[in-house]
Each structure stands twice: as C-alpha cells, then as structure tokens.
Design a protein around this nucleic acid. Structure first.
Lengths: 213, 213, 213, 213
DNA sequence: AATGAATGAGCATTCATTCAT
DNA sequence: AATGAATGAATGCTCATTCAT
C-alpha cells in the first residue's frame, strides 16, 4: 500500500509547489537524458538544455546542484527502472529460470530504450564525481548480478544451458545495450516486437530445449 | 611480388627519416586511441596525449592537422583492420556461410579488442568534421553489410538459420562491440579463447544444425 | 516629433537594464577602437581591452560575439558618423558644390579624428569575416562616391575646377585619412581649426575662383 | 670612385658567394615587403614568406636575425630610396623651392609605390624592437623635415605660398602615403602620370603664381 | 647552405558556476 | 522562482624561434 495522497482543494487539477518543483525537475531530466544520449555528456552544455526548455541557465541550478547531478539522476532513474520496476521481478523459485530470464530481458529492453536507460548505457560514468560514480557502478553491478543469477538458476533447474553464465551475461548485455544505437522509435518495429526478437535470439542460444522448436 | 626494399647500410636496424616520421605518427595514434577509449574524445586533451608521450603539445601538430584528424586516423585504422585485414576474408562461394561467419567473427573480435578497434566502437563520430565523419560512417556501413551478406549467404546455403539477418547482425555486433567495456587483456582469458566463446554463443543461436552438437 | 520617452522614477538619472547594457557595449567599443588604432587589431588582445576596462575576458563575450564583431562595430560606427550624421548633408541643388564640399570635409575631418573614424582608417578590413568585410567596404565605397559626386557637382556648377574628380578625391581622402597619424587632440590645435586649414588647402587646389582671394 | 670589382673567372655571369647571399637576401626582402603590405606584418607568418619562396622557414634565419629585422630592413630600404636616391636632390640654392618641391614629390611618389616604400607607409613600427624602431622613426623624421625645409625655402624665395609649412607637409604626405591603398600598377595610369597629377594638385594649392597658369 | 623536428609563449573562445536582484 | 551579468579555468591551436644534422 502506498501512502494516501492528502486531500486538496481543487482536487488533482492544481498542483502544489512541491509537485510543480518535482515535475519541472523531471522535465529537465528527461530533456537532459535525451541530449546527453544524442550528443554525449561533455558535448552537451547547460545552455543547450536550458535553451531546449526555454529557461535560463542559472535556473537549472535551482533544481540541481550541478551538471554532474543531472547526469547522476538520469543514471539513477535508468537503474531504478530495472531494479525497482513497477511490476517486481517474480522472485526466484516461483517460476523457471527460463521464464525469469524472459521477463528480465523484456524489462531490460524496455528500460534501455527509454530516455534514461539509453542515457545510462550511452554516457560514461567518468564525468561523475567519485561518490555518485560509485553508486552508479554499484547499481549496474547489481543488474549484472541479477542476470547472472537468473542464468545460473536456469542452469540449475535445467531450463537453460549455458557454459559460462558470466560471459554469456556480458554477450547478452552487449546485444541489448547496443539497441539504442540503431533502434528508432519511429520505425515500423515496436519495442515489444523487438524484445520478442531479442528474446528468441537469446533463447535459441541458451535455452536447454533447443531442438524442439 | 612486391617491389624489393632498397638496400641500406646497417640493414633494417636504422630507420630513415620517413620511417621514423611514420613510426612516431603511429605511436601518437596508438596512445591517442587508448586515451580516447578510456576517457572519451572530448575528455582527452591534447596535453594529455602529449604528456603521456613526453612531448610538447605543438609537436602533435607536426604530425597531425588537428585533434580531429587524430581521431579520424584511429577510426580509419580500426575500420581497415576489418576490411583490409592481412589475411583476406575467404571469398563468398569458396566455403559455407557458416565458415565465413566464424572467420568474420574471429577477425572482428580481434579488431575490436585492439586499440584502434576499441576506439572505433567507444568514441562517437560526432566530433569528426563532416567529410571525415562521412568516411567513417561509410566504412562502418560496409562492415555492417559484410556481416549481413554472410548471414544471408548462410541462410541460402543452409548452414545458418536466422529469421531476420539484419536484426541478428545488430544483436551480434552489440555483443561484440560491448567486449571492450568489460574484457581486460591482462585477465586469464585470451582473445582467442574469448572469440571462441563468442562464436559458440552465436552459432548456437543461428547455426542450422543446432541439435547435433 | 520623436515619441516621448516613457516617464520613469528617478528621472533620467537611473538607467534601466537595456540602457546599461547598451552603454557598457559602447564603452567597450570606444576602448577597443582606441586600442585597435594605437596598436593595430591583431596586436590588441582581448585581454588588453578587458584589462583596460577592469573586466574579465569572458565578459566581453557577453556583449559581443567575438573579436571580429567588435572591430566591425567600430567600423560601422565610423561609417555611420559620415553617412548618417546628426545634421544631414545639404542635398545637392540647395547650395553650390563648393559649399557642399566644405561641409563634407568638415564632417569627414571630425569623423576621422573621432575614435571610431580613426579606427576605420587605421585598421584594415582583412581581419573581418567576409560578410562584415563586404559591408564595411560597401560603406566606404559610398563615402568615396559622396565626395566624387560633390566634386563633379562643383565642376558642373562652376564653383570647382578639378580635372579628374576621382583622382582628386583620392588625394583629398589621403590627406584626411592621414590626420590621425599625426594630429593629437591635446595639442594647441582644435579640430575645427584643423579642418579649416585643410579646407583652405583643398579649396586653393580646386576652387574655381582661385585668383580673387 | 667606387672600388673596382675584382676580376673573376667567367666574367660577371657567375656570382660569388657573397653576391649570391646578398641577392637572396634582397629577394626575401622584396617578397616580405609585398606580403607585409598586403596582409599586414602580424598577419604575415614566416611560413607565408618561406612558402612563397619555396624555401623552409629556418632558412630565413640564415639571412636574417628574426622577423623584426626583415621588417626593419624593408623600412630602411624604403627610407633610403628617398634620402639616398640615385640622383641626389638638387641642393638648396641651386634652384627655386618650387622646383625642388616638384623633384621631391616625384621621388617620393616613386618611392611610395615601390615595394619597400609601400611597406614603409603601410606597416606600423610598433612591431620593431626599440632600437630599430628609433632608427626608422628618425629616418621618417628626416624625410618630414626635408619637405618642410623645401616648403619654407619656397616661401622664402617667393615661389611657394603656404601659410603653415608644417601642416601643409602633413597634408601632402597624407595624399602621397595613401597612394598605395588605391593605386594599382597594372591599371592604365603610369607612375609618372600619377605623380604629375599629384604635383599639379599640390602646386595649385601652394604655388605662388597660382593665376598665370 | 639548408632543413626536419621540436617547443615555449600566447590567444581567442567556451563553459560550468556564482551572485545580486 | 528565476535571471542578467560576470568570471576562473581550461583548451585547441598558432607561430616565431632554436637546434642538430
């Protein structure tokens, strides 16, 4: 249960200050994520972002400590999209490793094609200040581990057959992290169709029942 | 027959001026490629490169027109490593698509883990001036096409089974282009071993005879 | 009637932002014009100008696009001082060519001894970017033409006697454009006295009634 | 009497080392003078000059101490063309001031339209090191004085009528120093014709017998 | 007599960031 | 809540000059 929204005059129509603040912050982040992904972090100036939003440069500092923090928040949101997804990953044991793998891939593809996920895999962490950088790396490590665990689970329960889960995980991440570099949302292929294709590809490579397709 | 190298005093040990020039140029390029890959192009200053080589900044301009050209040459060398490799790709028809695929993957993996190949897939082309950028993009397009053609050939000759060669190619490129981000030369895994693993992974996914392994 | 200035608190004493901006811009321009004239354009660094104004170098970029634009604006102001003077040149026909010539010379001398006029005749246009350069050259051409037209008019109406108006104009411009190289404002000679002398010199050379002085 | 040229094998056809040295030096100077006049001193790089001569940059240092000295020599040659002309100015007393004035103007015009003279009046002396700069300024001062003296002489002997010889001299120098900015050698007007026109202009302005033309 | 190689010093320009309002 | 004005620090690039050969 989430905590109940306090009742307000005018209902939901009128936002209070905090909500406005938070919303504007989000708008900045999404714009920044897109621009960072397009042009790269260092090639994107704060003026670029401000211009795109029709606000002034210093205004950005009202919402964020500095350029770094904007990038960090983008990465954080990208990571959270996986680790704290709306629908939680089915816990280990409730279904086969193969089923969990499918679910994971589906979510990861969706994430990596969202603005924040794209930003996460397209921009390096070098620019981040050490502390934030550590957090991002830790987040990505967790995601890595998730896939490895799933693969191992699949191997254990006999639904997957892959000789080296660690390395396999990197191959699969590679295939997925490369998606933003060539997939275009406005083409004829939906994200769901794409993830179905990718899942098929991966499953052929490592599903245990490769012959009865 | 190549034209014979002119005889020289001291044999090959002592280089003439042109050779020294060319060698120094190569050293700069390799250093730059590594640094660009590590930190990114815009995060690498010419001072960084010069420092690493213990030369002065303007000296770089003796060997290259500008920072751009250095990047372009790195990309060019990366591309050439594939398209103009020492051992030419076996021409279509002389062997099965599957065999050619193996050869291609082996070469690509080796390339992408070389300094220039890594630079090619790690740094964007945004920084390049339009003309050079076009050339790089064209080069990469050709490499893309090579893999697609091989896949289609394999489908035709029955050695490969993949539903959508274009997309499959992108998955495979993704897996390979991601290698530099996690593979370390000084670890226990040789490049050849790695490419064998990757080839196994890909073959399981798309080789036609998936059941008789 | 000009449109009335809107009433403001504090009267004219306190400037609003736009006025301050414009005024600062003018101060920069005048400082730059003087320095360009003194040392030459390329010998003048932005640091020189900034130092003289006790501001920082980047601040100059808040008011101007680049070093070029500063020079262009100086030239523009110099040209406008002649072509758009406060008191318009008496139109052809309302007085004799000789009278118009006197007026033109008086104005030109005043202009060329002002900071911007001096800059106009002391610094070349090579530095300007093509577009601006074209505009400056066009402006100077118009001024050239003004003098030529006046001379021809004087020849027609019999008040001037000069065999080759074009060449004569260049002689006269030469005499005037050289003024900034030797005239010093702080000497005993006023600008008006100087222009009177110059007018006398020129009139003796080309006025039609040379004998009845 | 000049000292006799030593007899040489091959007669005059083959130059000895010193002559070659001196000739090459002259070629550099003339090239430099032209380029300095065209583009300005600081806008001309040593590479520009070297390129135009198809020699290498350091070679220039074999003939000149530094870039400054090249400019200085250009100025020196320009000044000498007036002060040490082949045909010496007729000494005061041997002819009227007016006649001497004509001769001076003729020579000055010729000088100022020669490469070195043009360089002298087109490039500033700011760049020169103090010592050389002093010499150039002194040289120009002498030339200034020559004209002033001639004018005063003409006033004294009644052949010229000008109220303020100093200022008149500056007007006349102005007209002449401006010539290189508009006169083109390849047009239809010869240097002699031009100097005749200029002399006519000046004489009308200051010759004593203005009415009996 | 000439030059390839190298460099120190300098300069225009950019940009994240700050501050007063 | 927002911004105009201002700046320190950095960076790519140029160029006169030197030196070994």
């Amino acid at each position: 249960m989430t905590k109940p929204t306090p009742k307000r005059a005018w209902g939901q129509a009128i936002q209070n200050r905090d909500e406005q603040f938070e919303m504007k912050r989000q708008v900045v982040l999404r714009t920044a994520a897109r621009t960072y992904s397009d042009r790269g972090f260092h090639e994107t100036t704060l003026a670029d972002i401000a211009d795109e939003l029709n606000i002034s440069k210093p205004t950005l500092y009202y919402y964020f400590k500095n350029k770094d923090e904007i990038l960090f928040e983008c990465h954080r949101l990208g990571i959270e999209a996986i680790t704290d997804g709306d629908t939680p990953m089915p816990p280990a044991g409730t279904c086969t490793g193969r089923e969990r793998l499918e679910e994971f891939l589906r979510r990861y593809v969706r994430m990596v094609l969202d603005d924040f996920g794209t930003c996460l895999v397209m921009t390096g962490t070098n620019a981040l200040e050490p502390k934030n950088r550590g957090r991002v790396i830790e987040g990505r490590r967790k995601i890595d581990q998730m896939l490895r665990d799933i693969l191992q689970e699949g191997v254990r329960d006999g639904t997957l057959d892959c000789p080296d889960p660690k390395m396999t995980a990197m191959f699969v991440f590679g295939a997925m992290n490369w998606l933003p570099r060539w997939y275009h949302h406005d083409g004829g292929l939906s994200v769901d169709a794409l993830s179905a294709r990718l899942i098929a590809f991966v499953m052929r490579a490592i599903a245990a029942d490769r012959c009865d397709r």
